[in-house]
Structure formats: C-alpha cells, structure tokens
Amino acid sequence: MSVNIQKSYSNEQASGKLYLVGTPIGNLEDITYRAVRTLREVKWIAAEDTRQTRKLLSHFEIGTRLVSYHEHNKQASGPELIRLIQAGDDIALVSDAGLPAICDPGFELVQLAIEADISVIPIPGANAALSALIISGLPTDRFTFVGFPPREGKPMQQELSSWKKAGGTIMGYESPHRIVKTLTRIAEGLGADTPLCLVRELTKKYEEAIRGTIAECLEHLEAHPPQGEYCFILNVEGQGDEADQQSAWWRELTSQAHVGKYEADGYDRKEAIKLAALDRGVPKRELYNELHRDR
C-alpha cells in the first residue's frame, strides 16, 4: 500500500471536496462562522437526520440541498455521494450534533473518499466528550474515548479489562435509561471508589456536572432519576499496572475461598460471587453452580 498524501487546498484536483462540519451539541451559538459559510457554499449537505439538520439550516437561513446519509442507507448512499464529489460537487457531512464520524457511520464515508483520492476537510466545532472532559476536574493529559459501552455482560467485562490496561482517563456516552446499569457494572469491574464525573445537557439550560466516586454518583442518581444524555469521565490512572501485578492474588485460592475472601471484606454472598466471577472471567451463574457442587 502506498502512502496517501492530501494537499487539502490544492487547485490541481478536478473533483470536489468532502467537508466534515461540526454542528452545535445544544446551544446554537456554538456553531462557527466558518461552519455556516461552508454549509452555504457546498452543493450538498449529507445529514444523519435531515429533519434535525433542517431545523439548524432554517435557523441560519441556509438553503443548501439536503441528502440523507446514515447507518441504514450508507451502503447505497456512500458511493453515490462519492460519485457526486468526483463530478465536482463539494459536500458537507454533518451529524445530529457535534463532530461527524464519531459514533456514527461518517468514518466509512471518509474511508471511501480517501480511497477515491478526495480531500477530506475538517471544519472544527463542538464535541460533547471533550467538553465534558475539560470540566470534569480529572486528568486530561492521557485519555481514551470509548463511545457507548457494550450492553451485554461478557463484552462489558472485556471492555473493563481493556480500560484497566489502558489506564488514564476514560470518557464515553450513555443514555439516561442505561446509565445506572452501566455505572453499576463499571463499579463491579473498576471499584466503586473510582473517581467519576457525569455530565448531562451540555451547553443547554440544565447543564449539570456530577463529580464524586461511582458509588456517590449512583447514590445521587437514585435520588434524582437520570434525565438527558450523559457523558461519563472516569479516571483509572495506574490501575492497569496495578491490576497486572495484583491479578494473581486469588489464583491459589479455591473458588469457595475466593468468594469467602470477599465476604470477609464485608460483601454479601451475592455480591461476593459476582466479584469473584469477574476476577476469574467466568459467568456468575457458572461460579454459583460450581460452589454448590463443591458443598
């Protein structure tokens, strides 16, 4: 494979360009002058949700034609957009909010553009995860964006293991109806005393940041039911190396003794089995059955 060199503003290209345009994540004042100008000047705007984007265009009196590009039509729509760009049209790609190509199929359109030797131009704008990070009060020198965590138990366990190895600050997204369950699983894997910042309604009237340990934030959510989309920021600095060094503490123990150690530390039987199963990388039910066979 040969190296790909992009000269973003070269006049030698006969084709158009693909612009990745950042849009507001809540407050419409967060759009840039350059973004508005670009949306006015391009031939087409490819939008994740044309209804949502039409509201934005109407507010700024932008009359550019809209086309749909999303997860369910990307296989057909992507090549057609590339064909239009190759014919000389400039196209702007936008998501419902924030920067396109993050947690949406935009990156696949970018890949197609690169393969077709089309310039891909970023038009910077608001981003929810980075905005939450800088107000979290947690370290910003090393961080990992994880998007939406897995919903199933085993993939989530694997995800948590990778977070431990990565260390640093972890940032991701979660919906209001899943945030409590997700944080509970994170507490089981990383510890309930892990520093956490929960941010919701960014740039909007009810913007809120909740800072504390996972346990403290879960307690807050019990008293104040979750509302709005959440960004979560966790700090697991140093846990990766420590976890590698200490991961063998239970290996010489029987399953019964392993669970007993957690019970001695103050956990009830059910929670002790859950934690031991997480250590051993086995389903909780499997460990439960093993314990009862050994009685």
Results as ranks from 00 to 15, higher is better:
3 V>Q: 12
7 K>C: 13
8 S>I: 15
13 Q>H: 08
14 A>G: 15
16 G>R: 01
17 K>L: 14
18 L>V: 14
25 I>H: 03
30 D>I: 06
32 T>I: 13
33 Y>C: 14
35 A>D: 02
37 R>Y: 05
37 R>E: 07
37 R>F: 11
39 L>K: 01
41 E>K: 10
41 E>L: 12
41 E>Y: 04
43 K>H: 11
45 I>R: 01
49 D>P: 04
50 T>G: 01
53 T>I: 10
53 T>M: 11
55 K>Y: 10
55 K>T: 06
60 F>S: 09
60 F>K: 12
61 E>W: 05
63 G>R: 10
64 T>E: 04
64 T>W: 00
67 V>Q: 04
69 Y>A: 03
76 A>Y: 12
76 A>F: 12
78 G>Q: 05
81 L>P: 02
81 L>F: 06
82 I>T: 07
89 D>N: 14
90 D>T: 04
90 D>A: 02
96 D>Q: 07
101 A>W: 06
103 C>A: 10
109 L>Q: 09
110 V>I: 09
114 I>T: 13
114 I>N: 10
115 E>W: 13
119 S>V: 11
119 S>P: 08
120 V>K: 04
121 I>V: 14
124 P>Q: 08
126 A>N: 12
128 A>F: 01
128 A>P: 00
132 A>E: 00
137 G>Y: 04
140 T>L: 02
143 F>V: 06
145 F>N: 02
153 G>K: 15
160 L>H: 00
160 L>T: 09
165 K>Q: 12
167 G>K: 00
169 T>F: 04
169 T>A: 11
173 Y>M: 07
179 I>L: 07
180 V>C: 10
182 T>R: 06
185 R>V: 11
185 R>E: 11
187 A>K: 00
189 G>T: 00
191 G>T: 05
192 A>G: 05
197 C>I: 15
200 R>C: 03
206 Y>F: 13
206 Y>N: 12
207 E>S: 06
208 E>T: 15
209 A>M: 06
210 I>F: 03
217 C>I: 10
218 L>P: 02
218 L>V: 01
228 G>V: 03
228 G>F: 06
232 F>W: 00
237 E>A: 13
238 G>C: 13
239 Q>Y: 01
243 A>H: 07
244 D>C: 11
247 S>P: 07
247 S>R: 13
248 A>D: 08
252 E>Q: 04
256 Q>S: 11
256 Q>R: 14
258 H>F: 10
260 G>H: 08
260 G>M: 08
261 K>I: 14
263 E>L: 15
266 G>Y: 13
277 A>H: 02
279 D>T: 11
284 K>D: 08
287 L>S: 02
289 N>G: 14
289 N>H: 15
289 N>E: 13
289 N>T: 15
290 E>F: 06
295 R>H: 14
